[in-house]
Simulated scan of single mutants.
Amino acid sequence: MPAARRSPSRSARRRARSRRRRTALALGGTAALVVLGAAGFTLLGPTDGQPQDAGSTTQARPVPPVSDSPEPSKPAESSAPPQSEPSKNDPSKNDSQVVQHGSGNFTTATASSGAVGTGGTVRRYQVQVEDGINIDPKAAADAIHKVLGDKRSWISNKRDSFKLVSSGTYDFTVMIASPDTTDKICGAGGLDTKGEVNCDVGKQVVVNSKRWLTGSPQFNGTLDDYRALIVNHEVGHRIGHGHEGCPGPGKPAPAMMQQIYGLNGCTANAWPYDSNGTYLKGPSVP
């Protein structure tokens, strides 16, 4: 007869149960780790399979997207004059007179004069004012003639003379135009006046009516003096002068200095020569 099968002992049964329990726990822990690795923020319990809060230390944090937009470009430097306190005569009170966009039509001043100056080339010029910009052509022509006839103006060099004419041949025109029209005329010659400044282009000296009516925040003289600076500076270009800088702190700014951008330590001055006939020169600048 075969031998009777012996029943496992109680201790053997306990050891078998212990091995099965350790195996189940190991498998359950492995499943939990796999799910955590895949989801990144969710932990599945080994028994019921339901999500459990893993806490802030394991929860994924959204990463802000990297923008592919370029860094904003720096604004281009403007040639417009910087802001400052109004000048002594407070020309800012005349701002309401400035017409931004004129008619585009010009009236030639019915004014003429004999030549001013004692030698050199006589340059004939007309004065034209855009219609509808609150500036009288005859009054403007008289003011310009007075500037060019002043002994502190360019006639002091004994090489240039000027004659105001209203008809016939002429060498150049002094045009006073609204800011928009100034930009259009000067822009046709490749110059960007930005609605603020004047220019000399072709056969035209173009005066921005904003400057004629309000002056410059950097110039602390009278409005009449600033108008003289406009005429002397632009006519200076007409007869061959370039820009000049400040010759030194406390000295008069040259008429060929762009004083609307600041005086750099110089004092405001409208005239190329002083009352003794000395040229008020500064270092040449581009």
Score class of each variant (00 low, 15 high):
P2I: 09
P2E: 14
R5G: 15
S7T: 14
P8D: 10
A12W: 11
R15G: 06
A16T: 14
S18H: 12
A31H: 10
G37S: 07
F41Y: 14
P46R: 01
G49V: 12
D53T: 01
S56Q: 13
A60I: 15
R61E: 13
V63S: 09
D68H: 14
S73D: 14
E77R: 11
E77G: 10
S79G: 15
P82H: 03
S84H: 14
E85P: 01
D90G: 03
K93A: 14
N94Q: 09
S96N: 12
Q97S: 10
V99E: 04
T110C: 01
T110Y: 10
V116R: 02
V122T: 13
R123A: 01
R124L: 11
D131F: 03
D136S: 13
K138D: 11
A139W: 00
A140N: 06
A141Q: 02
A141V: 00
A141W: 01
D142F: 08
H145G: 15
K146G: 11
D150M: 06
K151C: 05
I155V: 13
S161Q: 11
S161Y: 09
L164D: 01
S166N: 13
D171S: 08
F172M: 01
P179Y: 07
K184N: 12
G190Y: 07
L191V: 15
T193R: 02
K194M: 11
N198S: 14
C199D: 09
D200V: 00
V201H: 05
G202I: 09
K203G: 15
K203W: 06
Q204W: 05
V205E: 05
S209P: 05
L213Y: 01
L229D: 11
I230G: 00
E234S: 07
E234L: 05
H237Q: 11
I239Q: 02
H241Q: 13
H241W: 14
E244C: 07
C246D: 03
P247I: 09
G248T: 06
P249L: 03
P252V: 11
A253F: 06
A255Y: 00
L263A: 06
G265D: 12
P272Q: 01
T278E: 03
T278K: 12
Y279F: 15
L280Y: 06
V285P: 03
